[in-house]
Design a protein around this nucleic acid. Sequence first.
DNA 1: AATGAATGAGCTTTCATTCAT
DNA 2: TATGAATGAAAGCTCATTCAT
Lengths: 209, 209, 209, 209
Amino acid sequence: MGVVERRAREKEQRRETILDAAKEIFSRKGYQGATMEEIAARAELSPATLYLYFNNKSELFASLNIKMLAFLCHRVEQVAGQKGLEPPEKVRHLAQAMHDVYTFDPLILTNVLHMQASQELMDLSPELKEQVNSMAARGLRLMAGIFQQGIEQGLFRPYPPVALADLVWAVFSGLVLWEESKHGFAPEKDYLQDTLELAIEIMARGVSK
Amino acid sequence: MGVVERRAREKEQRRETILDAAKEIFSRKGYQGATMEEIAARAELSPATLYLYFNNKSELFASLNIKMLAFLCHRVEQVAGQKGLEPPEKVRHLAQAMHDVYTFDPLILTNVLHMQASQELMDLSPELKEQVNSMAARGLRLMAGIFQQGIEQGLFRPYPPVALADLVWAVFSGLVLWEESKHGFAPEKDYLQDTLELAIEIMARGVSK
Amino acid sequence: MGVVERRAREKEQRRETILDAAKEIFSRKGYQGATMEEIAARAELSPATLYLYFNNKSELFASLNIKMLAFLCHRVEQVAGQKGLEPPEKVRHLAQAMHDVYTFDPLILTNVLHMQASQELMDLSPELKEQVNSMAARGLRLMAGIFQQGIEQGLFRPYPPVALADLVWAVFSGLVLWEESKHGFAPEKDYLQDTLELAIEIMARGVSK
Amino acid sequence: MGVVERRAREKEQRRETILDAAKEIFSRKGYQGATMEEIAARAELSPATLYLYFNNKSELFASLNIKMLAFLCHRVEQVAGQKGLEPPEKVRHLAQAMHDVYTFDPLILTNVLHMQASQELMDLSPELKEQVNSMAARGLRLMAGIFQQGIEQGLFRPYPPVALADLVWAVFSGLVLWEESKHGFAPEKDYLQDTLELAIEIMARGVSK
DNA sequence: AATGAATGAGCTTTCATTCAT
DNA sequence: TATGAATGAAAGCTCATTCAT
């Protein structure tokens, strides 16, 4: 492995460092509240350096979201692609997968949704925009597919599949927001697990005949 | 009806105009993203005029939230205070009430939660801070009370009532976020009703023995 | 005295009310620090009303200074015009007169000097500008006259009279500034008298052969 | 002399450039009247740049005053510490020292006194506040010490030493204000020297038995 | 490649001034 | 005559972004 390769790996590592820092700051302060300077400080770099890796603030944010969406898609894909699993089982696995995602980073969805909501404001390059959108769509399509399969096998009520995917999304988002709300309302942590279980049941219930 | 009265009514109306504009903008852009200039433009006023009615940006935001919380509390109170209604019925009514609130303004909770999350950053006057917090607490206490009553009557599983109130909150927030997400993912509107029904069932299920 | 006269007197009274309020506020906050709103509040009037009596902030300030200068000139005139008084006596009386002025309003000179210093910045009407300048000049001329007389009678050293008048001014200003400085350095009040006495001596000493 | 050193020196130089510009503008317009934009323009920098060197307007003003007070303290210290000098001589030297300070920058005291007067209004960091106050106190203590010594040796009348230091201060301030007043009254420059001499005599006279 | 330094653009906020009533 | 309400203009300050080194 020559110098070129090492350089490339180093560069990739820096990128990750920055994305990690960005995740931390964007999560805590929101997109508008975060400053490039603060992200740079957390990454132990100068603000100017960030611009060597990302064209501007919104592309940094977008790249972060793509990374997170990729992880989410990956997990959902695993579930969707699992052979020899009945749809109801898959739904359970799906919920578990989403819980994993949530555990991996509780703020994924807050961010992703925010990205979606204000996409028109950000001046992303067309490629990035495309990437974000297609990835989000893919995640939903995968989820919808699971429910669709169940419907086709006559196991699920024929709720329009998109709506069900949205339900997953919604309940999951509930968890996220709920988590956030605790800064103010402060229930005990453990009820998250209870809530998750209920959410799984809802999903299963909502789709099984 | 003297001049003074008309003046007072006009003033109150302006306040409402501003709060409406603020709701619109804060909802779309978030607290940090919204600018006083934009809010003023939407209210068809000059930015300076906003400061005749609100001391600063955060107090405008806080006032908006207080108004929304007041409406929410009012509705929940109606349900909680309804005589001759069994707790399970009340839970159904509660869900309906929250749907009303949601219909009245789909963005209530997004804002309120954001307010809770970043409260420490805003330099609110102590009075306003107190008002926001006590109102939020009151809303939760009312909801918790409904479940508590059910538990005491042996009709509900003894989930800690706070957790249940949080569940309501969480699922409801899910609806909100879900709604938001549609800016990006755009499912059809009507599924909201389905989701709500499911949410009602969850709540009933989660609490009935 | 008809209605017209009463109206005129009332109007004059309002003017005085405003000038009093202005004196208070300008003294405490300085020209730039004072706001029309604060002055209006102190005069128990609306800001708009101030503009019925004065064209703008600087003319209000200028009018105030003219009033104060008038009082100062009046006192100095009394001393200068006193028959049968030898110049050395007159100097003593002059110092006393200035002390009276100072007692009447300790901030006269701070204000007047500020006015002089930044005159070019204020957009005064030519008439007001003229009035302020001629009044200040008259005050100095009167003081200079006293010393001049002494010199002509061979009683005072032939210091250029303007310089001596300036000395009076300077020492007196010292008192003013000194008073101001006490907000920070806080010596006891009574030493003002001592200092004044010394100042009188300086003045007498500086001019007597 | 590495890059780091040169950077540091350049940075220090910029700071000085800004302080010089600030001195000029604050002196002419006063604290409230001066604008950051004007100061920046004079320093041939953008307003934003000022904030790289000073946290805000009041800290810039405070830093300026600290610098000036430091110079003043330094000069007074030299006089106070001079061995083999009788108190009366020291008073003369003190007056000369203050004249030096005045020559170095005629506006030192105008600024410093203004700072003292409105200190409570400015939101300085506690450290800066402490620095300004302790430095001003130190200057006065040094001056008072000189007179105290004379009193203890029975050479001066037992005027409370603080009052005497204040007298020095006051007369000196008179010079400053007087200088200011000339923008309006414009006597010739040279009389400053005469006035100074008289001031020296006052001080000597005021304190010698 | 990395950064210290600089800045233009924009935001919140204030205030002298105006005007309809 | 008096004023409540409104606002243009400007001030302090922040921050994404650039550029010389």
